[in-house]
Nucleic acid binder design. Structure first.
Lengths: 182, 182
DNA sequence: GCGGGACTAGACCAATCGGTCTATTCGCGA
DNA sequence: TCGCGAATAGACCGATTGGTCTAGTCCCGC
């Protein structure tokens, strides 16, 4: 995919993000990450002094940034909030089909951690970021303030729930059908 | 709570279910389960010959039965589908506050397993059971067939998504507010 | 070309993992 | 009361876990 080799730190973050997403925090061993990222253990602990938990935090942030870009790309060309939300659902469904995304990467990465509250707080921060991103577009597209807030949260909840059912069924149609509930 | 001591097998299932729910399949060691359930390892492998994975399957089934009872209790006294669904949301919120339920017990238990597809299939089976339980009540309460099916799935998705946001925020109001989206 | 921090490399460690095995105790039917 | 399978009890095992540590390599300013 990339010709110029990616810096080790980024390589670790991205492979870790993918592994955590599919197998969960405790389901992934450092050995797995290091093998797949072709990096020695020394590098990991150089870039992430606190080891696995640092890596999980960074992975979650990276995954979140990808999601924020996806939200922005969905709403940027939209004329109405419904159009943007529908596009988002379709983009997620497509991603689900292509990459076999299993669940919300944040949930699988951060909802199991050892010192639970730092992880939980980070997950909350990320989720609020997603909701706010949707909220901004909702207001920009003319929704009244109260309605916009409710709609943004609604979209988040539907996507999270739909994601889970889609995974259980191994069928991305669930995500596509979410548009009828927005 | 219970005066008569619970049979070892049930004790294992229930403590395992609680641990899996909060920490995920890989986040729980057999030692944790055995200590908390006050059972020796021999008993575990007597009742669950395939060890941890058998235990996880049984735990998920048990947790699912609890959920089915909760759904039934919510809809049984309801005059309309909306009433029943609202009651369900409130009951879940209460449970969330009391027991600190973290996420969907099925998701945390089965969405990480080793031989992933047996676990996934079991999760799908359980989820369809929940949806069908809601569907039965929807039809009983007079919803047209097509609408009932959509509503039942909608309720499931909202609860799953709301559950996750409630956990991140450590706030059960999310679950209570779901009623406005049904 | 030399000095020094950034980074790579992987051997090594104690702790814990899930699982196996043998010995013992319990509880019920004959 | 005996017999026998169900169940309990926990020592033990190899593999793997996350984490530490030392040595070596790379690259850039001087």
């Amino acid at each position: 995919m990339t010709d110029t080799p990616m810096p080790t730190k980024d390589r670790l973050i991205q492979t870790a993000a993918n592994l955590f997403r599919t197998r969960g925090y405790h389901g992934v061993g450092l050995a797995d990450v290091l093998t797949e990222a072709k990096a020695p253990k020394g590098s990991l602990y150089h870039h992430f002094p606190n080891g696995k938990s640092d890596l999980a935090m960074a992975s979650a942030t990276w995954a979140s940034d990808e999601m924020l870009r996806l939200i922005a790309a969905s709403f940027d060309g939209a004329d109405t909030f419904e159009d943007g939300a529908t596009t988002l659902c379709y983009k997620l469904a497509k991603l689900f089909d292509i990459t076999g995304w299993d669940t919300c990467p944040i949930a699988n990465t951060l909802f199991e951690g050892p010192d639970n509250d730092a992880f939980r707080a980070h997950a909350e921060h990320i989720y609020e970021g997603w909701i706010n991103e949707v909220l901004d577009h909702a207001e920009r597209l003319g929704l009244a303030e109260g309605e916009a807030k409710a709609k943004a949260e609604n979209v988040f909840i539907l996507i999270q729930g739909g994601w889970m059912l889609a995974r259980a069924r191994r069928n991305s149609d669930v995500l596509r059908n979410l548009r009828s509930m927005i």
